[in-house]
Amino acid sequence: MDKMKGHVLEADSMWLEYEGCKILQNIYLQMQTGHVTGLLGRNGTGKSSLMQMIFGTLRGQNQSVRFNGDYVSHPYQHPGLISYLPQHAFIPSNLRVSEVCRLYKVDFTDLCRHFQDLEQYNLTRVKDLSTGNRRLLGTLLVLLMPVAFTLLDEPFAALSPLSIEQMRRVITEQKARKGILISDHAYEDVLGLADATYLIVPVGRSILLKDVYSELEEFGYL
């Protein structure tokens, strides 16, 4: 896959119900390489579920993910297409940091270029890292993977203010190579990075914001 060319990833007609309760219905969202797309919504509006559906690990009642117009049933199965940062811990805890980097096809020196303090953890097992450093490692691995699109669910969670500021720089750098979808409770950080922002509103509809702060107030997000 030539990631130097412009690519588009679309999520269309995303519909998810649990026991008759509508979580998402007829959601549409578009990502482009070279852009950061923000995803906002109150707790329980289905942001994490939508990311899992786009990634391909969650199947809803209906969903269509298209890469450059072509339907892709399980995007995560296509090498070089997509990476995903979930909210939960996902890195094998018994592996050393250097082993995890090889697994995710990320150069350890790239991690340290962005966060120099990580240099000391090359041979450390993931389970022996602090909660903050485990989250930092996971976020960097997902961001730096050689893929066309990256989904970030709460990338700033458990990070210090200084680390958040540096992570914002990494995201800005990486968007030159890929398209990034980001959702976080730190909505100011999301809006500061996003070229376009979608809001999920009850019940499960998506709105591409135009007058951002005015519409966030109108729909009760702020």
Rank of each mutant, 00 (worst) to 15 (best):
L141I: 05
L162V: 15
N133C: 00
A148M: 10
L151G: 11
L136I: 08
K175F: 04
A158I: 05
E119N: 06
L152M: 14
G132S: 12
A157P: 01
F156R: 07
Q116H: 08
R125V: 14
L136R: 13
R113F: 14
A148C: 06
R168G: 11
T139D: 02
R125Y: 07
F149Q: 08
F156G: 02
R168C: 15
Q120F: 13
H114P: 04
A157M: 15
L159E: 07
R168P: 03
I164M: 10
L159H: 05
L141S: 01
T139I: 08
K178D: 08
R177C: 11
L111A: 07
I171K: 00
R169C: 05
K127C: 15
Y121A: 12
R113N: 12
D128N: 08
T139N: 06
V142F: 00
R134A: 09
R135Q: 14
T172M: 04
K178V: 13
V126D: 01
V147H: 02
R169V: 06
E119Y: 02
V142E: 00
Q174E: 15
I164F: 00
A158C: 08
P146E: 12
L144H: 03
Q120H: 10
Q120W: 09
L118Y: 11
T131P: 01
L144D: 03
D128A: 10
Q166A: 13
L141A: 03
P155R: 07
T131F: 00
L123V: 11
T139P: 01
G132T: 12
F115S: 04
Q120E: 11
T150C: 15
R134D: 09
R177N: 10
L111N: 12
A157V: 11
A148W: 02
S160W: 09
L111W: 05
K178R: 09
R134W: 09
A158M: 15
V147E: 02
Q166G: 10
L123R: 14
E154W: 11
Y121K: 08
R134T: 15
N133H: 05
L140C: 01
R169F: 06
L118S: 06
L136H: 11
F149L: 10
L140F: 02
F115W: 03
A157K: 13
R134Q: 10
T131S: 04
V126P: 00
L144Y: 05
